[in-house]
Design a binder for these strands. Structure first.
Lengths: 216, 216
DNA sequence: GATTAATTACTGACCGTTCAGTAATTAATT
DNA sequence: AATTAATTACTGAACGGTCAGTAATTAATC
């Protein structure tokens, strides 16, 4: 008791701190983790709050509802990555082959091996529950990503590097092994043998894909 | 009132029928639908029951719990498909190229465009919740499927049709665009333009993949 | 000491699960 | 064949735990 008072006097440990500015981002990061792990319905806001170092009531100071929190997680975490990819493609000066490889590896660096990898999984799982969010995601992430890749492939066809193929279909085929790997890797993390080598998977995909689409 | 009696006498419509044998399969089919649409946590057993033409209590005559129902859905619907694929490969006499194409198309016919397409989506979404079921699925479906395809690719390498590659990695790359398409197609059904042509997607995948892996 | 970020305690709806009761079916008896 | 007894598949109301959301309270910061 005396010690508690001492601690109080010394301000050793205030029971909590007021950190209005940092809370939203911290809550979003925590929410991403829990939503990805448990799915929307099974996620408890008390869990999210605890992981962000606060209690449930605090969540409601920054987000209107569980659903609003979920939507914010998706909207605010993934779009910047697409923009980054577009910027990369715009600035790139090498061949189409090189750019395809670069984009694939960059996707893995920025999404595949980070916490963002959970977003595709989440969207697949919860799409039916949030039609409006799904539309947003499909337009602003999926289609935009495909268009980005399709542009590169079109470049490659025009300058004779690539065979003439439907560019949107080819773009989807360049991306789908990546998306699937991000999703499957998280889902089956505990099952996969340690021998599985993601880097080799990427290398082989790039090799087979470019070999497949290159003229001759 | 008089009419009710008449109906009763004619046995026009009993309020329900006793159909012990058919119930389990009907419940499993209904459960697959709802689980795929809503996810495990958001699925209400009352919904499943209604869709199977019974009430909630009946579910518990045939399955111990919601969890048991979920596990039964996965275990009893997907394994037969793998076995069918293995049989197909065993009986096949043509080239490795042809067999790869055949397996890809068969997967789509038996899984991609049927209700079974929901299973991969479910497993990705709920893997973290059911570790033991996930292990089962990973061993009996994922790995077995990959081994099947890897065997075919190995044949192709040995007889000179294919370039020497890591056969397991190549197998995963043959399948991943399919799995991703089955999952994404359901999730984004309402968003996809009608112009999207699955058949073309499959054709192009087969074309690019075989072109990529073929010697020369 | 005024402001407000944060906690704490509470409410009400929802849903998995249970089980007493009911109606469909089968079998025994006349 | 008709009647009645026994069986059991199925129903639906009720229970109890969980959790999103809210209101009251506390305490950190300026």
């Amino acid at each position: 008791m005396a010690q508690a008072v001492t601690q109080r006097k010394r301000r050793a440990k205030p029971r909590w701190q007021r950190r209005k500015d940092e809370r939203p981002a911290e809550l979003l990061a925590a929410a991403l983790e829990v939503f990805v792990e448990k799915g929307f319905a099974a996620t408890k806001l008390a869990d999210v709050a605890r992981r962000a170092g606060v209690t449930k009531g605090t969540v409601y100071l920054y987000f209107d509802s569980k659903e609003a929190l979920f939507k914010a997680v998706v909207r605010e975490t993934i779009v910047p990555v697409i923009a980054q990819g577009e910027a990369l493609a715009r600035a790139f000066t090498g061949s189409a082959r090189e750019l395809v490889e670069r984009l694939v590896r960059e996707y893995w660096r920025l999404v595949g091996e980070t916490a963002l990898a959970g977003i595709p999984k989440l969207m697949m799982a919860e799409a039916a529950t949030f039609p409006e969010l799904t539309r947003f995601y499909y337009d602003e992430v999926v289609t935009r990503g495909h268009r980005l890749m399709a542009g590169v492939i079109e470049r490659g066809i025009k300058n004779g590097e690539f065979r003439p193929v439907d560019v949107m279909v080819a773009a989807k085929l360049a991306m789908s092994p990546l998306i699937h790997a991000t999703v499957a890797r998280r889902a089956f993390a505990s099952c996969m043998p340690e021998t599985f080598n993601v880097q080799q998977y990427l290398d082989t995909h790039i090799d087979l894909y470019l070999h497949g689409i290159t003229t001759q």
